[in-house]
Design a protein around this nucleic acid. Sequence first.
DNA 1: GCGCTAAAGCGGTGATCTCTGCTTTAGTGC
DNA 2: GCACTAAAGCAGAGATCACCGCTTTAGCGC
Lengths: 194, 194
Amino acid sequence: MNADASTKRPGGRSARVRAAVHGAAVALVGERGADQVTLPAVAERAGVNSSTLYRRWGTLAALLADVARHRGDASAPPLVGDLRADLENQAVWTLAELSRPGGIAFFRAEVAPDVDERHDGLRECLHGVSERFRPVLDTARERGDAPPPPSLERVLDRIVAPLYFRVVFSIPGTDEAYVRALVAGLIGEAPLER
Amino acid sequence: MNADASTKRPGGRSARVRAAVHGAAVALVGERGADQVTLPAVAERAGVNSSTLYRRWGTLAALLADVARHRGDASAPPLVGDLRADLENQAVWTLAELSRPGGIAFFRAEVAPDVDERHDGLRECLHGVSERFRPVLDTARERGDAPPPPSLERVLDRIVAPLYFRVVFSIPGTDEAYVRALVAGLIGEAPLER
DNA sequence: GCGCTAAAGCGGTGATCTCTGCTTTAGTGC
DNA sequence: GCACTAAAGCAGAGATCACCGCTTTAGCGC
């Protein structure tokens, strides 16, 4: 569970192993699905001894959760200062992240861990999503936008939830245009009725 | 894979075994979580030999998908002929079904099966949800309701998706009142702003 | 360079799972 | 009732996984 890159010895080897393992995990989950992946399999693909994985991560769920956490760090789009644009950007990025090979698999992994840790994984995942949208709404409110921005809860219901739902069920037509329609439906001047 | 109750010999014993296995699966998933359940464990709880499970279902995912399919058959609420009431009833029932112990676990099981069958499981699950709401909209349309009912896609986005999302992330306050607010937000005369 | 030590590698062990050939039980049609 | 056979039970083999003591490697501070 402690898998901070910055714990004790972040130098060469640990970091290399970490990177190799993360890469192998992403690859395997992408091509087999999270259910068909085991720690030994990841270890072999990464060219690393499996005992290392058991020591550093303990369980597959913990490893996948770790991967998910550090996935797409520092790639989130910046705020531009316009509510509609920012909502669209964050939503499009969220959609893209979910749609990446194994995207939902990692989402599921974070949701899935053993019953004890399940709640933590869930909270963390939801927190991550929320924190991507909260600044958007906060700055809009501080800016004093004409119609005050919707609540975070509403954004989750009207934008994030449909995205997750549609990606999980791979409903066709879930693209950028659809995201824009969702945003438009939420903050008014809905152009196209879907 | 083929697990129709009505294949070759639906008589006494097969049906009993089937029921025992389904019950054991529900119990175990409910108390341990789907990840901690194995076919031998289900077999033992059901008082059935594990080879039977391997022969009839093959994999845990297939078993759970089978259970999910036959879960809550014939318990869905009837149509009363009023769009709002019917939407609310179906949505409340869906929420209740998802919230049952292991509810999301079974949802996930249907979503999860090995990559080959994943698409089938997904399609079937989505189809099941859709078919609960489609009649509601169809009858409303045939009835010639004043504002025509929303599209099925819209119902999925605005009602079903938030429910799934909130149950998966166990967001508090996801109850009957919330469902009514969702419906109200969709078909107009939204009473309470959330 | 040189020790120090965190972390990775190696090998092995017990437990569990998955699957299969054969036997036995018990519905179903006559 | 009685034969027929689908389906369940039994037992065991092979594979894999989870885990752990010990050894070896290689960053890091001096």
